[in-house]
Design a binder for these strands. Structure first.
Length: 564
RNA sequence: GUGCCAGUAGCUCAGCAGGAUAGAGCAACGGACUUCUAAUCCGUAGGUCGGGUGUUCGAAUCAUCUCUGGCACGCCA
């Protein structure tokens, strides 16, 4: 058993369905197949611990007012073997359940029993999931979009693992195609400029302007001199790319590592071309009649796949497009490597690509829905209340490394995981470094540090926690204690909801609520100095809070400090 | 022009498989440190859920129209 909440859901489900059956047999209600009984936590405490709207849901089938249906059900509820103490009908027909407090104390016991595995659930049932995120062009440094995608993707992958999915974190290296050509041409131009003079060599119009290109060329020149002058332009570019690209990839890898992201797989696009997988994928589509040839190019047949327009797969110069490679890549994920789901995190500017890719999977017998795309909106940085476009240090666009230097990993990851992916994100650089109550990162970390400090203090006085089964948890009766336990008991459900919606940000908000409940408790209830029985019960509760907060901070991949 | 995303308190945002009196943080105002960390807590105030129409027992949530902002519509990725 992983969750008391789940257990209660099952109890309510069973009891209600049984009541429907009995009512049907007695003829007071028509025979009704109620389907899933949705159990929720009412906003108002007066409405009980849990409630269901099932009487309203079946009002059509029942052919009577929801309140009346609910009344009939109530008469036939068999509450034996459940936590349920009292039930009543309220409002338009809600059935409200009031539980014995045991369920809360059982939650505490469950947390103590599971320790750091509390919150681990089996929603995913081992489904194989590939989560691909960042996948930045290796032609330059990581930008704010990559930073947001990185925080979201990494946290989502962690949450899915916690929810029982078999997760692989993957980075797709775009080391082939057009942008690599441009990368090579840019490097070559910079290299030639060093030797022949900047005014003698024109820089490609669509080249990469960044200073990093100049640095690569300079470094290569320092190490190898003018050796490339005798080569053809193609050879020069190839050698320069082979020189600079691994360095860039390594830099990306390092930046992401200092951002707390470690991938299971770094997948090279180039290998798809070299192994012939791209060609094979396009040929397959052609055989099945999903392509058309026109103007010397091979196009994906949009009409046949229900798309707005055709998309080029093979250019008239014979070079495959990014789309073709992406199809082969996802075929590789689903078929070659056997993932059940592929989850891609893309910047919202790629939204046009979503329908195309999903549709392009179908001819391969892959359900488009198994490709799940999480789009995230762009990031705006603010400093001194104004839009900050440039790094203070470099004067260039702010890179992930600049951000980490300015606000640190913890603040960056926390803030990027605070808002739902679909909403625009305004990142307040000043707030992220404020060491005050304005800063939610510190708010949560402070709760953890307070707990650790408290436990440490007790230890100094040779007071150590007792095993939970030697503690009288029923002494926990005060409002703040109950609210805290209630909040902690929701954790497994929060994991489930985050995983289902592919929206890890709700966990960040949840951990803030946990911290808030703890701070309220801390101000209302003393631990040290209370009579021993009560103290021991509260120590257990405090320790449960520590477990949950630490657990979530690990999912977001930020520190849980023991002192601040 | 077409499509996608967003519009909720002064600000930043939750809520959106329709449900009970629309929430939180910040900012504002008033309180709480001889006691386990005041980086905290308690309280007050703050709203035509962008606007209109529709669907129904019931709409911030669904449909439709409209306004505003962002983005995408390339033999770029």
């Amino acid at each position: 058993m992983n969750s008391i909440f789940e257990k209660i859901q099952e109890q309510i489900d069973r009891v209600i369905k049984q009541a429907f059956k009995v009512c049907g047999e007695k003829g007071v209600l028509p025979d009704i197949e109620p389907g899933e009984i949705v159990v929720e936590v009412p906003k108002e405490r007066d409405f009980g611990d849990f409630s269901t709207n099932i009487a309203m849901q079946v009002s059509k089938q029942a052919r009577m007012a929801p309140r009346k249906t609910a009344e009939f059900l109530l008469q036939e509820l068999n509450l034996e073997g459940t936590y349920i103490e009292k039930v009543d009908v309220a409002g338009p027909g809600f059935i409200n359940f009031f539980l014995q407090k045991d369920w809360l104390y059982d939650s505490v016991r469950l947390i103590q029993e599971k320790q750091e595995n509390y919150g681990q659930i089996d929603l995913g049932k081992g489904i194989k999931v590939n989560v691909e995120f960042v996948s930045a062009n290796p032609t330059g440094p990581l930008h704010m979009g990559n930073a947001r995608g990185g925080a979201l993707g990494d946290c989502l992958a962690n949450v899915l693992k916690k929810a029982g999915y078999d997760v692989t974190k993957e980075f797709y290296i775009n080391d082939a195609g057009n942008q690599i050509e441009r990368f090579g041409a840019s490097l070559e131009a910079r290299y030639l400029q060093i030797i022949l003079g900047a005014d003698k060599v024109s820089f490609p119009e669509d080249g990469y302007q960044g200073n990093d290109i100049v640095e690569h060329a300079q470094n290569f020149y320092n190490e190898n001199g003018e050796s490339l002058m005798e080569k053809t332009p193609e050879e020069r570019q190839q050698i320069l790319v082979e020189y600079a690209l691994p360095k860039n990839i390594q830099k990306i890898r390092n930046a992401l590592e200092s951002y707390g992201i470690v991938y299971d797989v770094w997948f090279s696009e180039k290998t798809l071309h070299e192994s012939g997988e791209v060609k094979k994928a396009v040929d397959f589509l052609t055989e099945k009649g999903f392509t058309v040839t026109k103007e010397g190019a091979i196009w994906l047949n949009g009409e046949k796949l229900g798309l707005e327009k055709d998309e080029v797969l093979i250019r008239n110069n014979g070079v495959p497009t990014y789309m073709a490679a992406d199809i082969a890549y996802h075929y590789n994920k689903f078929v070659t490597r056997g993932f059940d789901w592929a989850i891609d995190l893309w910047g919202a500017d790629h939204h046009g690509h979503v329908a195309r890719m999903k549709a392009a999977m179908e001819p391969f017998g892959i359900k488009g829905d198994n490709l799940k795309v999480v789009l995230f909106q762009l990031v705006r940085l603010y400093r001194n209340g104004e839009l900050a476009r440039m790094s203070k240090r470099t004067g260039k666009a702010i890179s992930l490394e600049d951000l980490l230097e300015e606000v640190g990993k913890d603040a960056a990851r926390f803030f990027f995981n605070l808002k739902t992916s679909g909403s625009h994100l305004d990142f307040d650089l000043d707030l992220a470094v404020t060491q005050s109550n304005d800063n939610p990162v510190f708010y949560v970390q402070y709760a953890h540090a307070r707990i650790c400090s408290l436990i440490r203090k007790l230890k100094e006085e040779n007071i150590s926690p007792r095993p939970v089964n030697e503690v009288d948890l029923t002494l926990l009766q005060q409002k703040e204690e109950i609210e805290l336990i209630r909040k902690l008991s929701e954790y497994p459900e929060e994991i489930a909801l985050s995983a289902k919606s592919l929206e890890p940000s709700r966990l960040t908000r949840y951990v803030m609520e946990v911290a808030a409940c703890f701070h309220s408790f801390y101000n209302a209830c003393r631990v040290k100095g209370e009579n021993e029985e009560l103290m021991m019960a509260r120590v257990i509760l405090v320790d449960c809070t520590r477990i949950v907060i630490k657990n979530i901070l690990e999912l977001i991949s930020i520190q849980a400090p023991e002192r601040m």
